[in-house]
Amino acid sequence: MIQANQQLDAKGLACPMPIVKTKKAMNDIDEGHVLEVQATDKGSTADLQAWATTVGHQYLGTVEEGEVLYHYIRKGSDEPEVEKSFEHTVSLETIESREGLILDVREAAEYAFGHIEGAKSIPMGELEFRLEELDKEEEILVICRTGKRSDLAAQLLAKKGFKKVYNVLPGMNEWNGKKTKTL
């Protein structure tokens, strides 16, 4: 079961209803959150992918269970690109040669559809409540999709007394290495 912030039941509905319902549901969730769309319309996979790209959301993937398709879409953000401010960074290319822990702060559903082998998942929104899962003395390489959330996460960790924190730039959207799925 993949974790999402909100579920939408669009089972039994034919085109264009899954899209129309998804659009409405998306209006009500926060930016960066993930919507799970349950549908039985076989065209919905291609439609939702195209729709998400058109309107600026991030299509994460689809899981098929029996007759039902579970689609995962992360709501896009209108916010302008902010300057990344955490000064300790490492390049994505060097990440595999390092010893430290890779901490993936994307949403659980993004992680599920593809992450670097061995990376630990703690979504940005949960990080401050789950600090005890991390070791303050260990090297921590924080990664997200583009480097924006990981910048904030790295700042948070440094503030909380973690000593060897690095923001990985760029993020998973540029990662061409092997991806592990946990579906």
Binding site: C15, P16, I19, V20, T22, K23, D47, W51, T54, V55
Partner: peptide
């Protein structure tokens, strides 16, 4: 169908 799909795509 086309009209609602287009409108749903903003």
């Amino acid at each position: 169908n086309i009209a609602t799909a287009a409108a749903a795509s903003e």
